[in-house]
């Protein structure tokens, strides 16, 4: 899923500083799963903003709404009757949400309430870790299901660097050296020689290096 974190309160408060009426719009997709932008978090942020304004003696009218997803036009359409009534709409979806909303409703101001961080999963309750860099050409089958692009600090593709020590990366004792894990697993399985097979250079044009990406599935296009 796409993992995000809520922006610092001070930043969100600054965004809505001049607003008297806002809508906080949640998303039931990835940000609900990573507990950052679903209905529960929408109500918490709404309450916090109301408290902050009540303390200042300046009321802020905050409406709350959470839609199925903010990355599909049919769901974006559901807020059609709501937008236009607010000084701003604060989106708690990943970075896609406020952009889709802005494109659909150009006259309405949209603010992001979260920082979108990475593609990952929950390694324990409340802890998420990066697993995919969205490079566009998956190669994890060469590395026993571990991605050195997302999980090696240097995205090395040919083995560990000199900063690997006792299975940890030099950037932090908290970060595993993924190359250590890959090599150990290959050794355990007796497939170490797989890593000796020469591979052509990775085509980075499918990653961000090729500019903004678009995916077209002809069988679905209407």
């Amino acid at each position: 899923m796409i993992v995000a974190n809520r922006k610092p309160l001070a930043e969100i408060r600054e965004m809505v500083e001049n607003c008297d009426k806002i809508l906080i719009l949640g998303c039931k997709g990835c940000v609900t799963v990573c507990n950052v932008g679903g209905a529960r978090e929408v109500s918490i942020l709404a309450s916090i903003l109301r408290i902050a304004r009540k303390k200042e003696g300046r009321l802020l009218h905050v409406d709350e709404m959470t839609i199925e997803r903010q990355c599909d036009p049919e769901y974006i359409e559901q807020v059609k009757d709501r937008v236009g009534q607010y000084d701003a709409v604060v989106s708690m979806a990943c970075g896609v949400g406020p952009q889709f909303l802005s494109e659909a409703y150009p006259a309405q101001r949209f603010f992001p309430a979260v920082n979108t961080t990475f593609f990952g999963g929950a390694i324990q309750h409340g802890v998420w870790a990066e697993r995919c860099a969205g490079c566009g050409t998956c190669i994890i089958h060469y590395f026993d299901g571990m991605c050195p692009i997302a999980r090696c600090s240097k995205s090395l593709l040919h083995g560990p660097c000199g900063g690997s020590a006792n299975g940890k990366c030099e950037i932090s004792k908290e970060v595993d050296c993924i190359w250590d894990k890959i090599v150990r697993k290959k050794m355990e399985e007796g497939h170490l020689k797989d890593l000796l097979d020469p591979k052509p250079p990775k085509d980075w044009r499918t990653a961000r290096d090729g500019g903004p990406r678009k995916s077209v599935r002809e069988e679905l296009v209407q």
Partner: peptide, 9 residues
């Protein structure tokens, strides 16, 4: 509490 409703404008 500084959040008392009567404090609101």
């Amino acid at each position: 509490s500084p959040v008392k409703p009567q404090n609101a404008a």
